[in-house]
Amino acid sequence: MKFENILVGNKGRIQYITINRESKLNALNKATLAELHEAFTTAFKDDSVGGIIITGAGTKAFVAGADISEFADLDVQGGADLARTGQSTVFDIIANGNKPVIAAVNGFALGGGLELAMACHIRIAADNAKMGLPEVTLGLIPGYGGTQRLTQLVGRGKALEMIMTADMLTAADALTAGLVNHVVFQDDLLPKAEEIMNKILTRAPLALASAIKAVNDFGTECINGYETEIREFGKCFGTDDFKEGVSAFMEKRKAEFKGR
């Protein structure tokens, strides 16, 4: 697929995915979501990619929301289909990916933009970032997993307050609420994301994938997260990376993991 709305580039084992609609504050339309689906599914299958950093072009917005013009003619079924397709093809793909994904949040992350950031495994915000779910001002609620992921991150009470008031959080308030992991100056945003990702990439890739799966199963209906942890823990013993990790520990050297 030729990308028209996103930029994809590699820096070593880190792949950058940049939403490149700066004049539209990087709003998510159907075409952009389709490109994100293609980019992430390809990255998760590419052995040369260890992890992904996603950000928005410019300094004003990570993603300022969905493209509301595409909502105007939808009925009840159309709205449900829009949410289901977006969740299954982009947001859940990211959340359940087998490689770490860091959101570098620059500027506004509103509506679908905050939902995109929340689908990532780690969030780092520039100090100018502002985050919120303003859907109720349009007579809607979040539809790309926002009600669920926000509740998991900040708790029921804070999630309901944010959703029902439609208020935005500053980067500092988002850090206090547990919505983001770190807040840095704008110029330090991508270097901080790379610093964290490069540290992660020294760890065993198959163990990282198992950790993501086990953590994602926390609180999932009809799934016992403890059983997932036990199963994934056991699987790690069958990997070459486990043997390498133990050998390196015993020999007091740095492990060289191969993802096997």
Rank of each mutant, 00 (worst) to 15 (best):
I54A: 03
G155M: 09
F185P: 03
P142E: 02
D75Q: 13
H37M: 14
L190K: 02
G219R: 00
L7E: 10
P191T: 08
D81G: 09
Q77F: 12
N26G: 08
E256K: 15
G51H: 01
V180H: 01
G9S: 14
L140M: 13
I93Y: 05
T147R: 15
G139P: 09
L33F: 06
M250V: 14
M168S: 12
V49M: 01
A166V: 04
A159Q: 04
T239Q: 06
D47P: 01
K254S: 15
M131F: 03
I68D: 07
A214T: 15
A255S: 14
A119D: 03
E232I: 06
G219W: 04
N224A: 13
K30E: 11
Q77Y: 00
G178S: 09
A57L: 10
G58F: 08
A117F: 04
K2R: 14
C222V: 13
T170D: 10
T165N: 04
G113C: 08
N198C: 10
G178C: 10
G79M: 14
A172W: 09
T59E: 10
Q152C: 13
I17N: 00
A83I: 09
F71T: 01
A27M: 13
L116R: 01
G65N: 00
A119R: 05
F44E: 07
P142K: 00
N128M: 06
A193K: 02
T32N: 06
F237K: 07
L169R: 05
K243E: 06
V184P: 00
G78L: 11
A34H: 10
L116W: 06
T59L: 11
K158E: 13
G113N: 04
A129L: 08
E38G: 00
F71V: 07
L150D: 03
N224R: 10
R123C: 04
H121E: 02
G245M: 09
V76T: 11
K30M: 04
G58T: 00
F108E: 06
V49R: 05
A211Q: 14
G97Q: 04
F40K: 02
I53K: 01
G111R: 00
A104V: 05
I17G: 03
L82R: 11
